[in-house]
Write a protein that binds this DNA or RNA. Sequence first.
DNA 1: CCCAATGGTGTATATCGGACACTCAGAGCT
DNA 2: AGCTCTGAGTGTCCGATATACACCATTGGG
Lengths: 229, 229
Amino acid sequence: MSYSYEYPRPSVTVDAVVFGYDAGELRVLLIERGEEPFRGAWALPGGFVGLDEDLDAAARRELREETGIEPVLLEQLRAFGTRGRDPRGHTVTVAFVALVKLGDHSVQAATDAADARWFPANDPPALAFDHAAILQCARAHMIEAVRTRPVGFDLLPAQFSQTDLQKLVESVLGEELDKRNFRKKLHALGLLLPTGEYETGVPRRAAQLYRFDAARYASLLKEGFQFRL
Amino acid sequence: MSYSYEYPRPSVTVDAVVFGYDAGELRVLLIERGEEPFRGAWALPGGFVGLDEDLDAAARRELREETGIEPVLLEQLRAFGTRGRDPRGHTVTVAFVALVKLGDHSVQAATDAADARWFPANDPPALAFDHAAILQCARAHMIEAVRTRPVGFDLLPAQFSQTDLQKLVESVLGEELDKRNFRKKLHALGLLLPTGEYETGVPRRAAQLYRFDAARYASLLKEGFQFRL
DNA sequence: CCCAATGGTGTATATCGGACACTCAGAGCT
DNA sequence: AGCTCTGAGTGTCCGATATACACCATTGGG
């Protein structure tokens, strides 16, 4: 099957920077390319957009096909369209950022992906195409997002300690924060619900576990509330 | 001439939201479409991306062709690719925001554009495609940008009064600011050079004119300086 | 000469952000 | 049982920042 157009034009792809959080470190999901170009290299999951397919639907589909992951939160980063970024010819890619709770998903490589694995987001391997630049841009996006929106809660399990959250924020920002000041702000937001439950199996005093009050956040937003950490 | 591909796929266009500032109001440059679809309707300037053409180069080219404008500052907003946004078939557009000093450019419609004119950015006419949504997004972008980056200086003439700048910021934000507090912050930034010249032809005390210290801003940026108004 | 309109200027107060250190709880080990 | 280790939990002070607020000066025009 083949299709004709009056003018030559770039192709459109989507790529997803999927972040997860595990072992105190921000991680990014990469696939090993099973096809040329860059066969055997690590890359962001993604692929061509189908005709009449929404961009975010395409990103979700490619993620599902290549890695088995179905993210809850997926938002557009921006388009990358520098000439020469794809050796097959000019392609414009629309990059997305997705956040997943690592425990909720097991990664399963398929279709174009020979393998799919989590890597440290701040120390990734060499990447195909211009994916290193896209990842860099996504990390900058996260630095902004983690301070101004409650994104941490999409990366942590449903229940988490205040320290869990702080370590995550520190990992994204790449800098350490003061425990008391962090908690002061956190409580001031009023978005944490104490569960009454505690960590188990830790060789020290167990930290209390909290839950994110999504309903309250939604209603605060309507009143012009601005999240800030 | 015709080109063939193995798979059907969306086309790529660029659209530019060009902002200017005049008569105390933020303005946006629109063209009247000279071709179907939406012939006769107002729309953002833009068009198809050529093969092997960078996205920003395409946006600049379309702007030049359709309106005669060559903006200094052009930055990507994001991609819009919702199915059905273009009646000709699926097209993905990458939207840009451009800022121009109104006095430096005279607008000249050509090629696909039957006309090109400035409209109030906060009260635009009905627009073709999903351009109203793109404009909305661009305005939100400006609200963010005007507080965190010295964008006002790209919209004003080389010399301007403090009040000019304040009125511009107020027009973008859609809210009024306190004169003394605004000037306090402005002076604290240390980015205004007094020119010693004054307004002329005004029926009141003439305001002193200033110039933006771009060199100083560039050097401050390297030291991790964050602009904030 | 008076009026209208805007230019230009400082202080006092509330709020926010950042620095900073100790005690307590619980698990594991001897 | 007692000791040790690790991280949990908690409040104050100070400096910086943001906001509210009012009057006189200057100029052109009528």
